[in-house]
Amino acid sequence: MSAIQYLFAFNGVVKREFWRFIQQRSRFLSALVRPLLWLVVFASGFRAALGVAIIPPYETYITYETYIAPGLCCMILLFNGMQSSLSMVYDREMGSMKVLLMSPIPRGWLLVSKLLAIALISLLQVYAFLAIAWLAGVEPPVIGLLTALPALVLVALLLGSIGLFLSARIRQLENFAGVMNFVIFPMFFLSSALYPLWKMRESSEWLYWICQYNPFTHAVELVRFALYQQLNIQALAITLGCTTLFTVLAIISFNPERSARSGPPKG
């Protein structure tokens, strides 16, 4: 297999993700509605209760909406990453996973292609959200929208790789509800997405430390700083390290035998 054939395979995986995405317009809408609800409804209600002090990367007092915007961008990436795990389990149950497994292109490359495809689709949704958020008064520096791009790509890869790793562990489609309860919600709420960690520390020291060990916290901080043209080295190192770890784990955990056993009884 030559390099050009690897690129053709990558192109095929990306195109399929886009085709599926276009077929599922409601997925795009729900991906936007969820963070917008948080931004418009939740933030309005909690603005007064959760005052935010001046903390890096911000140089002045900011509205609560501005504070949670990076976290909501990451929320889109988080849900999309988990959605990818759902689609992998669906492909496995429906049998279409076998097409991927029968490819002569190495599975590691195909999984990385899938991750990048998920990231590309997620980014479209994040920027659509940022455009609407702009209308709601969340106005990060325009250049920040560009400097945040690499951070968003890395976070999308991190959350996609966690999703792929989980998909190797989920036995049935029905178990996805468990992912919601045990992965998405704890990851999101035990992070700095909705409140700065010093606030969390004021109420609970041990919760603060759980948040500190949550890779999603560092993903949010990476995006928050990048939106304001700053680099949070610690957040970058942790996000990069976790992305590498989960990508490797996803590739190792990918078990073709589970796909072969899916579907109706055979002869």
């Binding site: 030559s2 399929r16 599926r20 429906m94 279409s96 097409v99 002569p104 292109i105 579907g263």
Partner: peptide, 24 residues
């Protein structure tokens, strides 16, 4: 395969394009 392995939500040509791409 005995079991359907086509993506039902894609067109015939899209299914073929995906498979062909996976073969480089």
């Amino acid at each position: 395969f005995q079991q359907n392995t086509l993506d039902l939500d894609l067109t015939v040509l899209q299914n073929l394009e995906y498979h062909g791409a996976l073969h480089g």
